[in-house]
Design a protein around this nucleic acid. Sequence first.
DNA 1: CCTACTCTGCACACCGGTGTGCAATGCCGA
DNA 2: TCGGCATTGCACACCGGTGTGCAGAGTAGG
Lengths: 203, 203
Amino acid sequence: MCNPCGVQNQSSGRRDTRDRILGAAVEVLGTTPDAGMGEVASAAGVVRRTVYGYFPSRSDLVLALARRAVDEIEAVLTEAAPVEKSADVAWADFVARLWPLVHRYRVMVVLRRGEFGEDIHALLGQVEHALADLVRRGQDAGVIGRHLPAGVLSQAAWSAVFTIADDASSPTEVDAASVTVATLLLLGVPESRAKALAQGSGR
Amino acid sequence: MCNPCGVQNQSSGRRDTRDRILGAAVEVLGTTPDAGMGEVASAAGVVRRTVYGYFPSRSDLVLALARRAVDEIEAVLTEAAPVEKSADVAWADFVARLWPLVHRYRVMVVLRRGEFGEDIHALLGQVEHALADLVRRGQDAGVIGRHLPAGVLSQAAWSAVFTIADDASSPTEVDAASVTVATLLLLGVPESRAKALAQGSGR
DNA sequence: CCTACTCTGCACACCGGTGTGCAATGCCGA
DNA sequence: TCGGCATTGCACACCGGTGTGCAGAGTAGG
């Protein structure tokens, strides 16, 4: 082999390389959604040709990426928001759990527009629908405001998380509690309660 | 001429055609940021070749578009937020004035990532800086919350406006007052005051 | 009517990304 | 030591978008 760039290629297994490519794709496409296969490949420490060995086409790569991300987000959501929990508490937990991983999902938001809008939106639809239900539940229980319809409100809060994430230039300029408070406020939760919830779910 | 598509071409003047192209570009690029010159052209009721007569390159078109949008937004902002006005009132007025025009600026948010990030960001930087200052002023006066640093907070509120805009599928599903309330809440303005301000600035 | 100007409708070259084929290389386990 | 396997490093064809050139056709105004 010839690997002058210090990229570790140890413990190569087929599954392993695939994961490394997927990981690189998250990173690269998250910041440059229209990057080519070549860029993804070199970010993964691999040659363009190799990527095609795992993903026959660019869209296969992107969709695999999306599917994986959506699965993870859905897992976090169902874990944080069981039906018996109050909606505002559930939201706080969800955001707190999501925040450390958010950089991995930035790619989804970025990818929604452009090229694959159709398919990505379908995948994301699952999550967004569940989120809307959660907000609606909160509105019915009176713990979440009615200043906007549930669908719009959940969407606004949901993407506020990502907006804050990629505006916070320094990695830890903003912590999970702050983001939780901000989104709770947007949802119409009173300030005192918002702060209490953020403390509670921040472990 | 040969115009089977019923596209009105009357009162052609050079400036006029230019404006129609720019308008079509706002529309098309707002929903499909990587649309080609051809798509913009036909949306403007014109042939691809004609567009090149006004904008020598695709980036010229995009940048002209961006410059124009930023100018308009800046005008709205300075009109709505003179220094003597309290920051929360100013924000409410700004959002209320911006809302009816927001579809024209969606393109900016969409265009920030991808291809021209550098230049667009420079243009938008003007506005975002002013917005951050406004929020900071509000925090210092105690009318805006400190749950997030001014820069991040202003950014979050600012893009919430656009998020809400393109999630509201039906055009008038959401009115200016609702959006104003939502963003004020996000900024940490108490609910009662937020609603009062939204009423006040809603004309 | 003639001129000037815009818009059209092709032609074309160029470029960058995609996807494929194939021979060569290096590694790891039997 | 040998055979299989993943990876490499070219080769290539293909496609779609960009930007240009040029000869027309339609139109408005003097």
